[in-house]
Amino acid sequence: MNGAGRRPRPISSRSSSGETVIELRGVSTTYEGERTPALHGIDMSVRRGEFVAIVGPNGAGKTTLLEVVLGLLPLSSGRGSVLGCDLARERYAIRRRMGYVIQNFELDPLAPFLARDVVMMGFAGSLGPLRYPSVHDREAAVEALSRVGMSMMADRPAGKLSGGEFQRLLLARALATDPDIILLDEPFANLDASARASVGSVVDRVNQAGATVLMVSHDLHAIPSRCARAVLMDRGRIVLDGTMEAVLSSREIDELYGGCCH
């Protein structure tokens, strides 16, 4: 495997309990039409209830890693399983139990969707074909909107929300279905300091309630305090994988972030 020569440096052993929910072994993936793989020999395992930050510079492969976990990209080598299901063969079963907040998504301002419709869309996938949201599901959607502080916005056209409001709407959509694993790709990108704190605490609470959280962020200061583990990526590889403090004080992060984070 490609990454064999450059194993991530182990920093400390983690003491998490619970079963493994994400297991990647020697995973590589190459985008169609590209020569070099976007991920090389990724080894990673995540236990139920963990809160993991995925950090690294632009183009490191953070988004690609989330998409591999979602089964959106084919593996060119290696194996992976998520929630006990094989990544290659049981993609749809896996996805129905995950919530995903996608990076940088701009909606046409005139798009014909109200905020509450967008939250309900989470159920379109999780319920599967020919099953329809129940009263309980609708209540969960209302509840998810209020958790991100967007109750007032339910009847607003989604395209007319501000960047931060829209980001919170996507988070509500991901939370509404009560997923086992939540994948957040730069969830703080458009948020001001107070929205950042409140969204951070929403994610904290969801994690406290048992959900496993993978959060991509290149802004190291934005990562909520509950997050105990960090995975540092660079050029398609995992460079470091350890406790938040250990990764933040490592020399690798100084090199990649130019010492700006201390």
Binding site: Y100, M121, G125
Partner: peptide, 21 residues
């Protein structure tokens, strides 16, 4: 039968795929 899938796909195809459609 499939209005919920259709709506999700009209909103964002990759997000719809990622949610299990």
């Amino acid at each position: 039968l499939f209005n919920k899938e259709i709506a999700a796909m009209m909103f964002h195809r990759k997000l719809a795929e990622a949610s299990g459609i």
